[in-house]
């Protein structure tokens, strides 16, 4: 896999005619119904839409957590639909960072251990993991929280830890699913400002939300309805 930084102006995400259907009882639900999307390196995109519009499915698709039934998805120039599970896992590890609404920190691990998880899965040496985690924590103002367990942290701090974990491998793409959904407005603003700051350093940011205010902040807005991109 190529790990070289993509030049500005190249596409990080290229979706072509992506289709995904779910079987819900007798009904076939078209979660994604012919989605086309192109996101360039360094872009800041919000994906908005009512619940059931397919935005979560799209996020999973972008994050290589789900496979489309039809269509092509090129991530940083590489076709992903033909990759096997191991390859997709490796791409997730190295090129994609996830930030979830409910943080998803492992409760029995300290903040620092949570941040080290992707590097643990990658098989980096303990010293290297420690150094990289310390760097990221310093950058996000978490240096004095490394030894804390998630339940000893505030919501905003937990999401910061989650963001630290998402970016510690220096991914090309950062995917955030309702990143402020579980936070009060002040911490929410903090978190979104942090994400935007990261975006300014060159990371491609895709935020999925149904919060119009949050969605408006992005430079580019994608609106989804019934599994289609309805408007930009």
């Amino acid at each position: 896999m190529n790990n070289e930084a993509l030049a500005d102006g190249t596409a990080v995400i290229e979706l072509q005619n992506i289709e995904k259907t779910f079987q819900l009882g007798d009904q076939t639900v078209h979660a994604l119904d012919g989605v086309n999307l192109r996101v360039m390196k360094g872009e800041y995109v919000s994906v908005m839409g009512p619940s059931g519009s397919g935005k979560s499915t799209m996020l999973n698709m972008l994050g290589l957590l789900d496979k489309p039934d039809r269509g092509n998805y090129r991530l940083a120039g590489h076709e992903t639909t033909t990759m096997d599970e191991e390859q997709r896992a490796r791409w997730r590890r190295e090129q994609i960072g996830f930030v979830f609404q409910s943080f998803h920190l492992v409760p029995r691990l300290t903040a620092q251990e949570n941040i080290e998880l992707p590097m643990l899965l990658e098989g980096l040496a303990p010293r290297e993991r420690h150094n990289k985690a310390s760097d990221v924590m310093a950058r996000l103002g978490l240096s004095d929280r490394g030894k804390h367990l998630p339940n000893q942290l505030s919501g905003g701090q937990r999401q910061r830890v989650a963001i630290a974990r998402a970016i510690v491998m220096r991914p090309a793409l950062l995917l955030a699913d309702e990143p402020t959904g579980n936070l009060d407005s002040r911490s929410g603003t903090d978190v979104i400002e942090l994400l935007e700051e990261l975006n300014r350093t060159g990371i491609t940011l895709v935020v999925v939300t149904h919060d119009a205010q949050l969605g408006e902040r992005a430079r580019r807005h994608v609106r989804m309805v019934d599994g289609r991109v309805a408007a930009e």
Binding site: G63, L65, E85, E86, R88, A89, R90, W91, R92, R93, E94, F98, H104, V106, L117, P118, L121, E122, R165, M169
Partner: peptide
């Protein structure tokens, strides 16, 4: 289950 999902999202393969 949630932890497994998370580990996968963070890049764990089925084998992991």
């Amino acid at each position: 289950t949630r932890e497994i999902g998370l580990l996968k999202a963070l890049g764990a393969s089925s084998t992991d």
